[in-house]
Design a protein around this nucleic acid. Structure first.
Lengths: 121, 121
DNA sequence: ACAATAACCGATAAAAGATTCGGTATGGGA
DNA sequence: TCCCATACCGAATCTTTTATCGGTTATTGT
């Protein structure tokens, strides 16, 4: 079992929110589910850069935080699971789309500066 | 010089935005600056959990991304620097406060689930 | 019998991020 | 002279996150 060593800032709403949607692929997963891509294997195919293991792990986290719900049919072939947004998850959508818009609007600048920060130094 | 090894998702606005404000203390720093706490030493004191080195590094990143501007007076004692939000930085404020609100509204749940995720398993 | 598909998990390796420690430079005050 | 404050940087180290690999279970088709 993994035990966190560095103290967190549990009074900062931003910090708390980032715990829920801060993972590298969470936004892509939420976006996929919102678009109707609900099965793990489908999500994995739709994101492709991310391995199925990562999708599984992040889905598990989203599930734990109550942002998505899971509907599984184990006694069917092939096994079938679907993940859907909960009310809490839906309450995140407008915020996510705002951040996404900001990112897209400033994409050019961010990409440039980002390259500078790691490129020539 | 450091070279990133894992490919990024440069078409996801959310992912890009997170590059700018994803650091552990960026939100606290932006909040401080917005409140008029503009000097590095003051910011460091106002955040206290974070070391001055961290503040310096994250300020440098925010500066590189054009979210803040720097006004330095080197020929003064003691040396004086001030960081202020740029237009781009200010355009982030409403978004930040929305995320913060969401986080505060769901603070109880997030804290509980967060504890479960690392605590008993 | 064997390959294929779906979902999932555990252990470990690799990468990224945060922290600590020491150092630079300037000039004021005890 | 020595110590303080301010701002800043480099490098080593520690922590956290992400990726990779192999394994499990169950069922269908070849």
């Amino acid at each position: 079992m993994y035990i966190r060593k560095i103290e967190e800032d549990q009074d900062c709403g931003l910090y708390l929110a980032m715990k829920v949607l801060g993972g590298k692929w969470k936004c892509c997963i939420l976006d996929a589910i919102n678009k109707g891509i609900t099965r793990p294997s489908e999500i994995a195919r739709s994101v492709q850069e991310a391995s199925t293991r990562v999708i599984e792990m992040q889905l598990a986290e989203l599930l734990a935080y109550g942002v998505v719900d899971k509907y599984a049919e184990e006694d069917v072939f092939p096994k079938k699971s679907e993940y859907r947004l909960t009310g809490l998850g839906e309450s995140l959508l407008p915020i996510l789309s705002q951040i996404d818009q900001w990112g897209m609007q400033n994409a050019q600048l961010i990409k440039e500066k980002s390259t500078e920060l790691q490129g020539a130094e």
